[in-house]
Design a protein around this nucleic acid. Structure first.
Lengths: 140, 140
DNA sequence: GTAGTTATTGCAAAAACTTGCAATAAGGAT
DNA sequence: ATCCTTATTGCAAGTTTTTGCAATAACTAC
């Protein structure tokens, strides 16, 4: 049992259960190294666990997000993609070529504080996706 | 013809056409005062223009976004909503009660500059949706 | 280990969204 | 006013995402 047991403990401590389906999905995301669409998660999870269904994948992803094990982010076209929660980061997608880079959260920390002060909201912690023009596309 | 003709000119100057369908959708968004889901836009636009179809609504919204007449934003659950382009702003949604406020873009301007400098990307201009805990929910 | 509780899944059907293509009609040219 | 070009729409069928509910199985307590 490689990494699953930590996740299991985390869920159980909140009164939830670890199931083969959740294991499979976490395994897929853990080894993907990048964010995946629900459909792609489904296709890969099926290889780990024959018989898993699509509704389960959707529900599980949402569930794992709510419990902080998975990070959602918006892909350029407005759909969610998912990746294992880990180092806190954001994305910038190039409007021209679609290429994408990560931005470490530390860069936003200051700004989040300003935003909290200005808005009165607390614990702001969204994953953000920016659109811009990347260096190679912008050298007109 | 109240406000439609400005939009028409804007589109024509780019080689596009103004159609009853686009008028209806722009009219709906113009008078909504808030952002609407594609489904809601469809339902309201149908009252303006019997016979308009759902695919048209989806395609038109995307088209209007590309041409800067409409602003997309992510609702809390990860779907797109749309509103007429105007004052540049962002949203913060309360994770607890779902309540939502607008944040003027001026507050982010500085941060966008920092982000551009750090990333090498240019013309970053995404509409952002933050999640946090609003003042009334946070007074524990 | 066994039994009980209830979180979780699968199934099936619905709703939301997308795509390709032929038919239509907006706007420019005559 | 009429014709022409081609942007745009509607239709129909596909794919993706959601939902309700009965059946299952994970964990707890014994």
């Amino acid at each position: 049992m490689s990494c699953g047991s930590e996740y299991a403990t985390q869920l159980r401590s909140r009164g939830f259960r670890m199931t083969p389906q959740r294991m499979a999905i976490l395994h897929v995301l853990h080894h993907a190294g990048t964010h995946l669409s629900p459909g792609e998660v489904y296709r890969r999870a099926r290889r780990e666990l024959t018989g898993i269904t699509e509704p389960t994948v959707y529900r599980t992803l949402e569930f794992l997000v709510e419990n902080g094990l998975v990070q959602p982010s918006h892909s350029g076209n407005g759909h969610f993609t998912y990746q294992i929660a880990g180092r806190d980061h954001h994305h910038i997608i190039c409007r021209a070529c679609g290429n994408e880079i990560e931005v470490d959260h530390s860069l936003l920390e200051n700004f989040y504080q300003i935003l909290e002060k200005a808005s009165g909201f607390r614990s702001i912690n969204s994953h953000l996706t920016f659109l811009g023009v990347c260096p190679s596309c912008g050298s007109s």
